[in-house]
Amino acid sequence: MARGPFSDGLLAPLDAARSAALRRAGPWLGPFFADRDRRVLWLGLSSVAVAFVATGAAPLWLLLLGPLLLGVPHLLSDVRYLVVRPGLHRDGWLMVGLGAPLLAVTLGANPAVGVLAAVPAVLSAPRSRRRAPALAVAGALAVAAWANADGFQLIFVHAHNLVALALWFFLRSRPASHAWVPLAALAGSGLALAGALDPLVTRFGGWSAPATGLDFGELVVSHADGLEPTLAARAVLSFCFLQSVHYAVWLRLIPEDARPRRAPRPFAASWRALVHDFGAPALAAVAALAVGLAAWGLLAPGPARDGYLRLATFHGYLELAVAARWLSQGRLA
């Protein structure tokens, strides 16, 4: 990929600054970051820790700013590593089979339609003895979604954050120590549900943040309807925490693991790889979308967040479809 004014003009100085910082911090950080396996482990654990503390300190701000600032980039990463890098986009029929239900569910179709995106994802993979079980799982989920759309969506909105962790974990063969990352995420979710974050949220006044336009009472109805009120608030905290981990997975862990180069990659090289994957026009459109969403968020945070969430509906079902495909290929084992 050719160099350009963006990579040479803006990113080259950033790379120089990062190199200088790494040289200075080398004696301390080197052992943790020089090796990819170790780097990914520490990035994962520190992401989980930061997400946990941030959830305790300012959950409503995290629920607002996470989608507005990281939402679009994480969708781009989602499509990049689930569709573009594996080359699924080269299969036109598969794109139609995947895209139609994903578009339909984004436009408001029953969630069962979104789940059915798993069918073409599985059937287009090389035939294997795991195909039938993968289709059976997808079918069972579709039936469950059709029978009880509300309940399914309520569970799915929480569970899809964990699907991303599973996709990351099974992206490649990795040391057993990496299992600490999903275990830490599960532990953090469990602690939030058990009330461990309550004192922290109270200490930082996080139960209320009028400037965000978000309200815990309303979030409880939308994210944890039917639960006992205190447990429901903790479920919202758990969602907030896992959503932050979800963003970290797509924006840090998966890109680290998916690139051929094991050493940290310069920003300029990462940019050129991104341009190679999507092309400049598509990236310009995504950048405009991200900037537009952030600007909208400055003017009307609540509606902007709603708008993003409406747009992002497809990605949870895309993750589910690819997870089913990997299940059929024996990668989730």
Binding site: W93, L94, L116, P260
Partner: peptide
Amino acid sequence: GLALVAALAGLSVVARGRRPRPVS
């Protein structure tokens, strides 16, 4: 619903033979 499932399955069977590049 059944028509949609059948359509998706049909499309995917057509696309089945094309093996994608694995994730790097």
